[in-house]
Computed example of a mutant assay.
Amino acid sequence: MMRDAAQFHPLDPSDSRVTRPAFWGALPERWTSEVEETLVCCHVWQETHDVKSFFLRSPQGRTFSFEPGQFLTLELEIDGEPINRCYTISSSPARPHTLSITVKRVPGGKVSNWLHDNLRPGVSLRVLGPAGEFTCARHPAPKYLFLSAGSGVTPLMSMSRAHHDLAEDRDIVFVHSARTPDDIIFARELELIASSRANFRTSFVCERVGARTDWSGVTGFLSLPLLKLIAPDFMEREIFTCGPAPYMKAVRDLLDEAGFARERYHEESFSFETLSAHADAPAASPPAESESSAETASFTITFAKSRREIQCGAQQTVLDAARQAGVRLASSCSQGMCGTCKVKLVSGQVDMKHSGGIRQREIDQGMALLCCSKPLSDLVVDK
C-alpha cells in the first residue's frame, strides 16, 4: 500500500543521535595505500567453522578501486616480528566502500591464527595494494569456467560477485571442491546468485560427506569425466583456477588430457595463505667489511613515484635494502615465487634469481621482482 510522502520524517542530520557514514554526502576520494596506510576492521563474519571474512574500510571514508581477483598485502607485527602476508580480496569492486578478505585458520599458521584471534571491529591494519594479475577483468570472454578448491574460492568469488552486482549475466560455471559439505565457503551465496542469474551455474564436489547425512551432491574428486558432465562445453570457456598446488596440478593434467588451449587457462600461481617459514625471515644483513670491493659496492636505488633514494649493497636484494631504509613495498614470499613485489625498472640492471613469480615476457618488458634482485648498477624503480 502506498503511503503519503508527508508521513515520512527523516531524522535531522544534525541530531546527535544520528551517525552518518563517512561515504554519505560528497563523492569520496579513492583510497591508495600511499596516502592512507591503515584500514580499520568494521565487521567479521564466520563463514565456516574455520573460515572468517574480515571487512575493512577507510577511516577517512575513501572508496576502493580494484579488479576482481586481486589481493592485498597486510603489514603485521606479531610477537614483535614484522610479517607481510597477502590475502585475496573476496568482495566485489562494485561495492567500493568496504572490502573483505576471507581467511582460513591454518593449524600452526602464525598469521591466519592471529587474524582469527585478534582482528575484530575497531582494530586497524597497515595495508598495501591492491595488486595482482589473476582477474577476469583482463580476459573478457563470453563464457567462463571457475574452478576452485578450499580457500582458493576467494578470487573467483570476487569475480562472481562483481558480475552479479553489475547485473551482467555472463555465462559462468563455478565448480568448487571442498573436504566436506560443511567446508564449502560461500555455499548459500553462490546458490543465491545461481537462483537469480539464468546463466550462472554452480556445482560442489566434496571429498567426503562428513557429518552431513542429507548431502545429495557429488562426492569424490574433480575428474575429466565429471567435468564433462558439469560443463560439457568447457573446451569453449575461459578457465580460471585457484586452490592448493596439488589441486591446480590435477586440473592442469586433466585439461591437458582434454587438449585444452593453455592460452585460455589462468591460475593463481601461489598460495598466499600457506607461505613457507622463509617468508617471515628477517631482512639480510649488509655485506661484511672483509668481502671484496666488488661485493661491497653500493648502488643508488631511486623510487620515482615516492621520490625516495636509498643505498643498496651489491650482495643485498633491493627489497632488503628498502626495508632497512623504511621504504614500504608490497612483498610476501621473499623467494621470487608470488610476484607480489613485481615492479617496473625505469633504468638500470639487476641480477634476478626468481622461482617462477615472473614471466619471461614481463622480464623482457623491464619488470623485476625486488625480493630476489641484486643491483648491477644504479636503479630507477617505477614505485
Rank of each mutant, 00 (worst) to 15 (best):
S292C: 08
S332C: 06
E273D: 11
F66T: 03
L125I: 08
A6Y: 12
G336Q: 10
K374L: 15
T63V: 14
T219C: 03
F200C: 04
E207A: 10
L147K: 06
P232M: 08
E37A: 13
C206A: 09
C341Q: 01
G348K: 04
F66L: 11
G69T: 04
L229F: 04
S347T: 10
A178L: 01
M235V: 11
R62H: 14
I184H: 03
E77M: 12
Q324E: 08
F54A: 02
D169W: 08
G122T: 15
S33K: 02
R3H: 09
I83M: 02
T135N: 10
I301H: 01
A198Y: 06
C372N: 00
C338H: 04
I363M: 06
L145Y: 15
E309N: 13
I184L: 08
T302M: 01
N199Q: 09
E263L: 07
S334F: 09
Q349R: 14
S65E: 12
L39I: 05
M1P: 12
H354V: 08
R308D: 03
L147I: 10
D12N: 13
T317S: 13
L222R: 11
A94F: 15
D182G: 07
S203R: 13
D182S: 12
G210E: 03
T180K: 09
E291T: 12
T302E: 13
E273P: 00
L255G: 10
A281M: 10
I239M: 03
L229C: 05
K374I: 04
S65I: 09
S290L: 00
I184A: 00
Q335D: 10
V40Y: 02
H139D: 00
A5D: 06
P287S: 05
S112P: 08
T340K: 00
A314R: 15
I230M: 13
E267P: 00
G69K: 02
K305I: 14
G259N: 05
H266C: 06
H164E: 07
M367F: 13
P107R: 12
G80S: 12
A330L: 01
W114T: 02
T32D: 01
Q324I: 03
W114V: 01
R197I: 00
V218D: 04
V111S: 13
C333T: 07
F272H: 09
S195H: 03
A321T: 10
L379T: 04
H278S: 08
I184V: 13
D253S: 08
A314M: 11
R359F: 12
S177W: 07
K228N: 14
H97I: 15
L226S: 06
L190N: 02
L115W: 07
L74R: 03
T296C: 07
Q315Y: 03
A194V: 08
A288F: 02
G108T: 11
R188S: 15
K383P: 01
D182K: 02
A277K: 03
H49D: 13
L369W: 05
M248H: 05
D183S: 11
A94C: 14
M157H: 10
E268C: 03
A162Q: 04
